[in-house]
């Protein structure tokens, strides 16, 4: 009995992830606990979001080594700034992925070879909006829902949204890649996201 109690305490102190039921983990609660400096909560939040943080950054940067470096920066930033998270303005996962995406896009745009990257990645993206990364883990409900909702967009909406989000292109770059007027690209980004929002059932109350 005492032995069990001790091992549980040791487990807590070494931040081994809690193997609790994945469905019961609430990212909002975890991020709030992280904001109070709770390292065990951070380890659990890591397990919940890291594959998407890393996958998203890798998708934008197309370089696993660089993606790993940026993912580490992002996840440590989540730890440092978690106290700023306010659930009234959106979900914890959205907060984390927004940081990850912005950081990945910033890195991509600061690359010296960005002009070449734009042409290379853009051409590939139009032909294959889902690359091999997306297929590494299959059968996840969220992924299926996202894919279904992306399929629900018009071709142009889907292209402008995925070129910006997954490839990190600015709207003028997207306009250039698709040979489409700037105004049309801006409009399709907005109405594409609105359609995605409605399909995914996203709501923000405050």
């Amino acid at each position: 009995m005492a032995e069990r109690g001790r091992s549980r305490r040791v487990q807590h102190l070494t931040s081994v992830p809690c193997p609790g039921p994945a469905g019961a983990v609430d990212a909002n609660d975890l991020l709030r606990a992280v904001g109070r400096g709770d390292e065990a909560a951070f380890a659990r939040l890591y397990d919940l979001v890291a594959p998407r943080v890393y996958g998203l950054i890798r998708r934008v940067l197309r370089d696993p080594a660089q993606a790993e470096e940026v993912a580490q920066e992002v996840l440590v930033e989540v730890w440092r700034t978690a106290a700023r998270f306010d659930p009234a303005h959106g979900s914890a996962t959205s907060w984390v992925f927004t940081i990850a995406h912005r950081r990945a896009v910033g890195r991509a745009r600061s690359e010296q070879s960005s002009a070449e990257r734009t042409v290379r990645a853009g051409a590939a993206a139009i032909d294959t909006p889902y690359d091999e990364v997306a297929d590494e883990v299959s059968g996840r409900l969220e992924r299926q829902q996202v894919r279904r909702c992306l399929d629900d967009l018009t071709e142009l909406q889907r292209q402008v949204v995925t070129l910006a989000y997954y490839q990190g292109h600015s709207y003028p770059q997207v306009a250039e890649l698709l040979k489409t007027p700037l105004g049309t690209v801006k409009t399709r980004m907005r109405d594409g996201l609105i359609r995605l929002r409605d399909c995914l059932g996203v709501e923000v109350t405050a």
């Binding site: 890393y54 998203l56 303005h89 959106g90 883990v137 996202v146 923000v204």
Partner: peptide, 18 residues
Amino acid sequence: AELREAAARLADGAWSVP
């Protein structure tokens, strides 16, 4: 906020084990 939330859900489609 809602559009950001929708955009962030696209991260679900980029899942990759680090």
